[in-house]
Design a protein around this nucleic acid. Sequence first.
RNA 1: UGCCCGAUAGUGUAACGGUAGCACAGCAGUCUCUGAAUCUGUUUGUCAUGGUUCAAAUCCAUGUCGGGCAGCCA
Length: 594
Amino acid sequence: MPSTPEPSDFIRDIVAADVAAGRHARIHTRFPPEPNGYLHIGHAKSICLNFGIARQFNGICNLRMDDTNPTKEDVEYVDSIIADVRWLIEGWADQCLGLKRKGETPTASEANGQKDYLIPATLPPAPAAELEPFHASDYFEALYQFAVQLIRLGKAYVCDLSPEETEAYRGAPDRPGRNSPFRDRTVEENLDLFARMRAGEFPDGARTLRAKIDMASPNIWLRDPLIYRIRHADHHHTGSQWCLYPLYDYAHCLSDYLEGITHSICTLEFEVHRPLYDWILTQLNLPRPLPHQYEFARLNLSYTIMSKRKLLALVNEGLVSGWDDPRMPTVSGLRRRGVPAKAVRTFAQRIGVTKYNGLTDVAVLEFAIREELNATALRRLAVLRPLKLVLTNLAPGEVHQFEAVNNPEDPSAGTRPITLTREVFIEEDDFQEIPPPKYFRLRPGGEVRLKYACIIRCDEVIKDAAGQVVELRGTADLDTRTGGPNAAKKVKGTIHWVSAANATEVEVRLYDRLFTEEEPEADGRSFKSVLNPHSLEVRRAKVEPALAEAALGARFQFERLGYFWPDPLDSQPGKPVFARTITLKDAWAKAGTK
RNA sequence: UGCCCGAUAGUGUAACGGUAGCACAGCAGUCUCUGAAUCUGUUUGUCAUGGUUCAAAUCCAUGUCGGGCAGCCA
């Protein structure tokens, strides 16, 4: 059923083997972002992996807010995450998106004769208004009950060590830790203290709940890790209900269990946490099959940074216009720039999934974007840096109409009429008074074809007092028009143009990469020291009249320049602002660089 | 330097003991009313050293290099 061949990777191999062995009734993955920032292209890789697996194996992928830290999270982020995920999977994996009924929390049930908690996923076409993503914070009560159970089992204890003392007792990677003096409290005392922690009797940091494992373990995460801390803070989803919040390691594995997740896929830095993930689930003697964690390498992309904290800094310091600035590697930034979701998915598929921590060339992403847009974008003529050309053999008011192809890659896109008049604008770059070798474009006395129209010759160059070329005079050879007697005449160059008589002037925003270095943070430098000063150039461009009415969402190729679309926020009806999604590949410019 | 993970063309990945392939990038050419796209060709690779085997990118050992782990972050 999948329209594109599904890629294979070591995680898919595991899933496929599990399916073949009949280990699960249904494959269930999850995408669990913390709502403390916007999603970026690295998250997109994870989304494509998790939803891709669900899609491929006929399963479900839950969208879950991993919201166990009230002081860093916000609904603004929850909303942006939902929008970004929907955009990315739309028309591809919507049918796999696992959500839950609003307000629903895990229900106590029975499994294999034991008490159990479970929260099932609800799939479309359930009414969207009644659904919301899963939230780890919806499990706080269940999680609390599991913790009580751990205490009863003698596997967790309340510790009164201060943060500093806790750190000191933990030891170091090459030095074992020491047992907390509170490690051997009785079950009764632990139960009492834990209940009072929940009741708000103690200030932040006064006490924690810790798993009782092994302070001498070579794995730091097994040295009696903290599983609950006191935080007298309101939570964006649970309000003031709690002053006791679980930590990631404890909440995550159990959240996976509660949702019936089969494959819990995360990034490499959690590899050393896996023994803890397994430990917690194992201790609880749970009645249903346990989820398993698998790790893959997060995405590193050249010419960009991926850390949420640093992206936040770009936003807060006004170095970009916001999280959705088209230069940002965020999903919302890519979307606003006009990058099709499908191109992002293609990119994710091509880069693969491994445990090798590499640096992916942004050219792979750029190629996927051009590939998609080349096939779909409508061709239009636009001149970014206008130079006036007067065709002296045409009378003022004389109009010639031509037919322009909308998309040579897609005949069904049809054609449109364009008009040639005495005065046209051509691109400054397309004329050189003293051309370099192999220059195909216009030169004094030279000829060039105006795309879709006819061949013209440059007869005269007009300069201002400063010696700048301000205008060209030339003649049009209408016999060379398409279908004309000399249509077959060859010239080396074909350039784009617009008629001065009916061109519209619009704002265009030319985006380039945000950083000048492949690895902005190489050898300890600050990414702020290598910001590209030319990452945004705003211009007034002359465009063919059809572009003035460009609909939001429409994609265009401005011929010989790049792919553009109307900025979804700043465009007004009849007054579009065009954002350049990406340039066309430019072999000529590249040759000039060498 | 304790534990964990990794290493295949420039980059990212495939090959699951049996011909090292793909994509991007690069280069050369073709085509072109977009110096785009297309099409063709092409440069470049198994971290090192041993071992097992008829046969090793693949299995084993050692080493080298890289990454991760000492938040009451996730």
